[in-house]
Write a protein that binds this DNA or RNA. Structure first.
Lengths: 242, 242
DNA sequence: TTTTATAATTGGTACGTTCCAATTGTAAAA
DNA sequence: TTTTACAATTGGAACGTACCAATTATAAAA
């Protein structure tokens, strides 16, 4: 399975940007880029649009395509969204993956909400996995995960004290690369205050969503309740429905 | 200037989703949609991809295209999901834009953080605009905006009781179409509790970030503090450069 | 020199076609 | 009935063309 062309081109352009390959912050026009890369203009457009979406470049009709100067100047604040998928993933960036303490692990009937989120039928069962995540010994998140037993029939207690996605990759040879998340905030309840060492006035950040496997199958419905200081979600938003 | 087709189609599909026009959460296949809408399959794909990006639907090759059930559940007031940039737009769902009450308006020296975000130098000045936003008379957000005075030298009190972006469009003929935002949560302080009618245990949601004009110039550094029930951010996240 | 009209450049939208890959449905075979 | 092989369905990638719209560059006119 070879990489899609527009992905290759996009990666190449991005690295050129990093290396200062466009001194005046202006990229060549699309037509000549197409010729140079030996692909169609459509593919160039697609590659560029990915970068636009990431806030790295911007286009202006009639003028050309430009590097976002802020991106070069301060990439630190531009640690953009791609880094935010799973939890162990987004926090592994700072060095070590967080420790996991298993609080509860059982099989229950899927609620209607879980059924629709995970493509299940009435009466289907899911694992309920309740875990506490710690970073350097400090707990920062309570996570409720729900996984259809049909997807991972052999799941054991020992498996869920580590990343589920690692397990899936090893056992099913599928990757977990996509998710739909809703981000919210709410006052903390007593349990959260105890486990996360929060004062009664301190809230939790909530990240709720579905994680998908490579092939589009919903793998997990997750409700993550974070110590509010650990909720930081970065997003580049652009108008024009693209 | 008539609307692009894929935008029209995208809007139509979205409203159909809201109205439950796809009972089994499955959309028709792309080819027949193309025929029904009288557009090419490419245009359908484009429209659908916008919705994928917004986390409203997802596709599965070989199977079809499906509505994200979580999205329907979280039909929130604040749908800041990629098609809505500024506050006035994000909340215009019920028809009317939110009211603005000006709390403070002054000129200050830019902090180091603002300097790097807005491309300013030491000693440069910014407007500080503190506003309270209301929806149907109910305050839901306190907004601190910082705009370089060099960009909008003639800005007056009367201008900031409305959308700044409207002012920019009229005076400078530039559009504000992109932003880079960070989403966080925090306990509420006394002032926020008073203005947003929060209990001491109830938090604020924070959306902080930079708004850009369409020529790439950073226009505003904004810190928005929302009543926690109004913060609902939907996002589609995918790893691997797409 | 300044202004104005025109052309060239550059990205945007849209179409339709070709081929591929993953999944699902169907029918034949065991 | 179960299994297997094959066909149909469905989304993905890529191409190339045509035309449009915003901007910029150029040349002509005042």
């Amino acid at each position: 399975m070879t990489e899609a062309k527009y992905v290759t081109v996009q990666a190449d352009i991005k690295s050129k940007i990093y290396q200062g390959g466009y001194p005046d912050l202006k990229l060549p026009d699309e037509r000549s880029m197409a010729e140079n890369y030996g692909v169609s203009r459509s593919s160039i457009k697609r590659a560029l649009n990915v970068l636009v979406q990431q806030g790295i470049i911007f286009k202006k009709r009639g003028s050309g395509t430009f590097v976002n100067p802020l991106y070069l100047k301060n990439q630190a604040i531009f640690q953009h969204e791609g880094s935010n998928l799973g939890v162990s993933d987004s926090f592994r960036i700072d060095g070590q993956a967080p420790a996991i303490e298993l609080l509860d692990f059982r099989v229950i009937q899927a609620t209607p909400e879980q059924q629709s989120a995970l493509f299940l039928n009435d009466g289907d069962f899911v694992y309920e996995i309740k875990r506490l995540r710690k970073l350097n010994g400090v707990p920062f998140m309570i996570e409720y995960g729900y996984v259809p037993i049909a997807l991972l029939p052999g799941l054991k207690k020992g498996d869920v004290t580590q990343s589920i996605y690692g397990y899936v990759e090893k056992e099913k040879h599928k990757k977990v690369t996509r998710s739909f998340m809703t981000i919210m905030a709410a006052p903390s309840n007593e349990e959260e205050q105890t486990l996360l060492k929060l004062k009664p006035t301190e809230p939790v950040g909530i990240m709720e969503g579905i994680f998908f496997m490579d092939d589009g199958t919903p793998l997990e419905y997750s409700n993550m309740r974070l110590h509010y200081e650990y909720l930081r979600y970065n997003a580049f938003v652009s108008l024009g429905s693209e």
